[in-house]
Amino acid sequence: MSGERSDESALPGFDDMVQGPTGRALREWPEPPPLSGHGPARIIALCNQKGGVGKTTTTISLGAALADYGRRTLVIDFDPQGALSAGLGMPSHDVVTIYDLLLGKEKDARKAVQATKTKGLDLIPANIDLSAAEVHLVNEVAREQILARVLAPVVDDYDVILIDCQPSLGLLTVNALTAAHGVLIPLECEYFALRGVALLVETIDKVRDRLNPAVQLDGILATMYDARTLHSREVLERVVEVFGEKVLETVIGRTVKFPDATVAGAPITSFAPDHPAAAAYRQLARELIARGQVA
């Protein structure tokens, strides 16, 4: 999630967080207790058909924060652009990818898993080959459930699996929703980003009715928030007005540290652990654990 500003002395969004930018009292989410055991994982799809809203940044940073809290976490790059793999500094060519698993070129999902530099955080990578997956899968039997079958062997190895979806509502995203227990929608605090949320929620409802009765909307995460602009504040107010408690209390502000961390191939929590952006993602991890959406 990039921003034009280079002045880090006044971080837009972060200063206001103590007042609760969603209009609610901002609770101090407790430090999560350690787990006595691991698995089976709860699968969360990070979806928004609009690009550039912070899905990949959130997958990386939230995954790393959960791993830091002792949750075994697997992140899945489900976007042909391969931004998640690149953002973690991991190879995505000449290795087993999610594309190979979807097409049955590799049967064992564990052979695609790569350990990242963050302890407890693993990755299944993707590259441009994934763009051909929808064409290959369109004639497959139960094509919407292929990802769920692919992930079944590794579910017991993790506490949470995060799927970074591509910016579309095509077959790959439907596969992610069919495999998932919950959906997290990163939403840029901008009018055009807001317009598409209703369509995405409608798609989630259809998947629940027809393919996966267990899937639910875990929450909407406001991203790229700038408290100094009336537009950001109005968009966030409107989202809270429509979706109420489904809007997470944690809000992610704009900062140039996110693209800096991406260039470094590291999560913000390790690239700049004392930065307010890292604190925001640790708070998000605590909020999801406290809400029961992550073990």
Rank of each mutant, 00 (worst) to 15 (best):
M1V: 13
S9M: 10
S9L: 10
P12E: 06
M17N: 12
V18M: 08
G20N: 08
T22A: 03
T22K: 00
G23P: 11
R24Q: 11
A25C: 06
A25L: 11
A25E: 15
L26D: 07
P30K: 07
P33A: 15
L35E: 04
S36A: 15
S36L: 13
S36H: 09
G37F: 12
G39S: 09
G39H: 01
P40L: 05
P40T: 04
R42E: 07
I43H: 01
I43L: 12
C47Q: 04
C47Y: 00
Q49A: 04
V53F: 02
T56Q: 06
T57M: 04
T59M: 05
G63N: 03
A67T: 03
G70V: 12
L74I: 04
L74W: 03
I76Q: 00
D77W: 03
D77Y: 03
F78G: 01
D79T: 02
G82A: 07
L84H: 02
S85T: 15
L88V: 08
V95Y: 02
V95L: 02
V95G: 00
T97R: 01
Y99A: 03
Y99L: 02
L101H: 05
G104V: 06
K105A: 12
K111A: 12
V113A: 11
Q114I: 14
A115P: 05
T118C: 09
T118M: 11
D122L: 02
A126K: 01
A126M: 03
N127G: 02
I128Q: 12
I128W: 11
I128R: 12
V135L: 14
E140M: 12
V141I: 15
V141Y: 08
A142H: 10
E144R: 11
L147Y: 05
A148N: 12
R149E: 13
R149A: 13
P153W: 10
V154L: 09
V154Q: 00
V155G: 01
V155A: 06
D156N: 14
D159T: 08
D159A: 12
V160A: 08
L162C: 05
D164N: 07
C165L: 06
Q166W: 02
P167T: 12
S168G: 14
G170V: 08
L171K: 05
L172Y: 05
T173D: 08
T173E: 05
I185V: 15
P186L: 14
C189F: 03
C189V: 10
F192G: 07
A193N: 05
L194V: 07
L200N: 04
I204R: 04
I204H: 02
R208T: 10
R208M: 07
P213N: 15
A214N: 12
L217F: 09
D218C: 09
G219Q: 06
G219V: 06
I220F: 10
L221P: 02
R228G: 07
R228M: 08
T229G: 07
T229M: 10
L230K: 13
H231P: 01
H231W: 10
R233C: 10
E234D: 15
E245I: 09
R254S: 11
V256R: 14
K257C: 11
A261I: 05
T262M: 06
A266Q: 14
P273D: 00
D274I: 02
H275M: 09
P276R: 04
A280P: 01
R286A: 09
A290D: 15
R291C: 11
G292L: 10
G292Y: 11
A295Q: 09
